[in-house]
Amino acid sequence: MSTLLLRLGAPLQSWGTSSRFVRRNTDRAPSRSGVLGLLAAAQGRRRTDPLEELLGLRIGVRVDQPGRLERDFQTARTRDGANSMPLSYRFYLADAVFAVAVEGDRALLESLERALRSPVFPLFLGRRSCPPAGRLLHGLAEGGVRDRLEQHPWLASPWVQRRHQEPTKDLDIVVDCPPGESDAELVRDEPISFDPRERRYEWRSIHRTAVTVPNPAYHAPTSGPGPAVDPFDPMAAFEGIA
């Protein structure tokens, strides 16, 4: 199997799998339905087009930079301005970065890579107001999802890497897994249809674990004598008095 690696980063992104009515939540990591929707948009698939070809892909997400949760609210009135509509709340992840590994047949992944380089429809990270920023494609290579997520360098922003004063970093990952696997969780974000008249999502199994990657911004302390120490002790004058 081959795996295509993507970097999903932006000032704002939102990945809702359980939003209802006036409250639109976001998950802490990209959803399967959101990633497949991004790939379908790049290919030019319309919401009414079948998704069977994409449903066979296996997806894994590594949380390289978790970001922070932000809440926005929107107001609205009726067209004549006479009545106020209920407040609606929107939740986003601000300044987050994710490494997303997409595993499948190489020919399909090569076509997806070409589509992502020249997408038919605009790409967005969960919502239309959240376009991706920075380098999206990080190569197609042999190996499975976990192999790519373990081996690929940390994709967090340089300032985040510099603030982490350790040689390695533990990163959470979420990977598709077979039903019934030990410690598996069920999430309802397997898209069967994006048709607005009949949206359908089924349950899928995921496994949460972690991987350790090197920190490219870490610099080990240099050996040898350290800086000279000032022998002056401002409290020494009080020792005799005490």
Rank of each mutant, 00 (worst) to 15 (best):
P167V: 04
L125D: 12
D147Q: 15
I173N: 02
I59Y: 00
E202I: 08
G37Q: 10
A237S: 15
R62G: 02
V175H: 00
E70G: 08
S2M: 04
S14W: 01
I192E: 04
L54Y: 02
R197P: 01
E150G: 01
L93S: 03
V175L: 01
R188E: 05
D27Q: 12
R199P: 01
P132V: 10
A228M: 10
V63L: 04
V63C: 02
A220P: 01
R204H: 02
Q13W: 05
A133W: 09
E181M: 09
E70S: 09
E103M: 08
T168R: 15
L108S: 11
Q65L: 04
S19W: 15
N25Q: 12
R20L: 13
H207F: 13
G16T: 10
E202A: 15
M235D: 15
P234G: 13
G56I: 07
Y201M: 02
G240A: 13
N83Y: 13
P158L: 05
P191A: 00
D27E: 13
V35G: 03
G60H: 03
L149A: 03
Q13D: 08
G144D: 07
L36C: 01
Q151V: 09
R71S: 12
A217P: 00
A220R: 02
D27I: 04
C177E: 02
P131I: 10
R197F: 03
I173K: 04
W15A: 00
F91K: 02
R200P: 04
G139Q: 11
F91Q: 10
D72K: 06
L12V: 08
P225E: 06
R128W: 10
R117L: 14
L136D: 08
P179L: 07
F232L: 09
G67E: 01
D105H: 13
L125N: 11
P50Q: 05
D49G: 03
L108E: 11
V61K: 05
Q43E: 15
L8E: 12
G134I: 15
A82H: 11
W15C: 05
D27W: 09
L57I: 02
D230T: 08
P216G: 03
R77K: 12
R45P: 03
L116Y: 09
L5H: 09
R90S: 08
Y92W: 14
T168I: 08
D49N: 09
E150V: 08
A107M: 11
D72P: 02
I59S: 01
V213L: 04
Q74D: 14
F238S: 11
S18G: 12
L186E: 02
V97R: 02
P66I: 06
D64F: 03
T209R: 08
V213R: 06
L6R: 14
S205K: 02
A217I: 06
P66E: 06
W154P: 00
L4A: 07
G224T: 00
G180H: 08
A41S: 14
L36S: 00
Q65V: 03
L109N: 03
A133C: 10
G104F: 07
A156E: 04
E181K: 07
E185S: 11
R28T: 06
G126W: 06
